[in-house]
Design a protein around this nucleic acid. Structure first.
Lengths: 186, 186
DNA sequence: AAATCCATGTAAACGGTTACATGATTTG
DNA sequence: CAAATCATGTAACCGTTTACATGGATTT
C-alpha cells in the first residue's frame, strides 16, 4: 500500500526518501503513516521493479541525496491501481473497540478515567484537523514547490473533512456512553 | 492484539479454536477479525506461555476438539493489559483515504462511480449494524451458552452503536463530496 | 556544547494473510 | 451424492515496526 502512496506523491515531483517522509507527515499521516526505514526499503524495491529511477544529487553545503523519479511504468502501475473501482470496504482494525468490548468488568471510575482521556485526545485531534492541518496543505505547496490542479486539492481537503467528521462522531459516541456509565453503581 | 481478544473471550468460557472463530465472527468481527490459521497459531503460543491450558475433548458423534481454558496467569495478563489507561489514540490506516487523496486526476464519471459504490456499500453496512448485528448479541449468549453481566452487554452494544454512527458519518461525508463533484466540468 | 535536523541505510522481529493438507459429519 | 460445516493444523510469504548504525550541518 505504501508503494501506491509513494507513487502518488512522486507523480507531483521527484523526491528523496527523506522528502517523501516529510511530505507524508504533513499530508496523509493521519490516515497513512510510514517510518523512514520502510520508505527506503520500499523505494529500493520499487527501483528494482522499474517503477522509479534514482540518482544522487549534490547539494551545496549539505550532504547529497538520492532523488527518485517516477517512470512510465510507475505511472501505469499507479493508474492501474487507482482507476480500479473498489467494490469492497477495507477491513478496519480498531484496538480501542476491542478494549471497549471487554470493559464491563472494570471498575466504574477506571472506565470513567479512560473515557475522559479518550475524550480529551479526540478533542485535541479535532482541533488539529480544524486548525493545524489546513495549513499543511499550503505547506505542501510551498515547501515542496508543488502546484497541483484545484481538483487535486479538493480531494486533499475532503480527507481533512473526513477527519473532522470522524472526530466529532467519536466525541458524540463517548458522550452518549458517558451518560449511561455515570448511572452505573459503584 | 489478537492475544488479548482471545483471552477476553476465554474469560467467558473455555473454547476451541474453531469456537473462538465463531464467537469472533458474530461479535467483534466488524472491528477485529482473525483467520483460523492465526487463531490456532496464537493459541499454541499462548499455551507455551502458560496463559491457557488445553485438553482434547471427546464429542459423541463428532470429532474431538481441543478445548482451551484460561489460566490464572492468563487472567492476570488480560487484566494488566485492560486496566492500563490508553493515553494515545490508535494509528488508523485507511487505504480508501489514500485513494481519495489522489483522486483528482481521475475522470469525473470514474470518480462518481466509485462514490456510488462506496455509498451503497456503506448503506449495506449501516443496515447490518442496525438490523443484523443486534441479533448476534443474542446468538452469542444462546449458541455459546454465555450469560455475561449486563454491564458487559452494555459495552457490546456500544461497539455496535459506534458502527452505526461511523456508517452514518461516512454517508454524510460521501454526500457532501458528491455535491461538489457533480459540479465538476467533464 | 548539546540538541535537533538532514540524510541514508541494514537486520531482526512481529503480526497477519494466503495457500496447502486432511478428513469426518451433517444437510440439501 | 454433493456441498457445506466442523475441526485442526503447517509453511511460506508479506508489510510493517523496532532497533541498530553512521555522520555532517544547523540551531539553541
Amino acid at each position: 500500500m505504501l508503494l501506491y502512496a509513494l507513487l502518488g506523491i512522486l507523480r507531483y515531483a521527484p523526491m528523496s526518501g527523506y522528502d517523501l517522509e516529510q511530505f507524508i507527515s504533513i499530508s496523509i499521516t493521519h490516515f497513512w503513516n510510514a517510518k523512514l526505514s520502510q520508505i527506503y526499503r520500499t523505494l529500493k524495491k520499487m527501483e528494482e521493479d522499474g517503477l522509479v529511477v534514482s540518482e544522487m544529487q549534490e547539494q551545496d553545503g549539505a550532504r547529497s541525496k538520492r532523488v527518485y523519479t517516477i517512470t512510465e511504468a510507475g505511472i501505469r502501475e499507479f493508474e492501474s491501481w487507482h482507476t480500479q473501482i473498489e467494490t469492497e470496504l477495507d477491513e478496519i482494525k480498531q484496538p480501542f473497540l476491542v478494549r471497549t468490548f471487554f470493559m464491563g468488568t472494570q471498575d466504574k471510575d477506571k472506565i470513567q478515567q479512560q473515557m475522559q482521556v479518550w475524550q480529551s485526545l479526540h478533542e485535541q485531534h479535532l482541533n488539529m484537523f480544524e486548525n493545524v492541518l489546513p495549513q499543511n496543505i499550503e505547506r505542501v505547496k510551498r515547501e515542496h514547490g508543488i502546484h497541483p490542479p484545484q481538483r487535486d486539492t479538493f480531494f486533499w481537503w475532503t480527507t481533512l473533512r473526513f477527519g473532522i467528521l470522524y472526530e466529532q462522531m467519536v466525541l458524540q459516541w463517548l458522550a452518549e456512553m458517558q451518560q449511561t456509565i455515570d448511572q452505573f453503581d459503584e
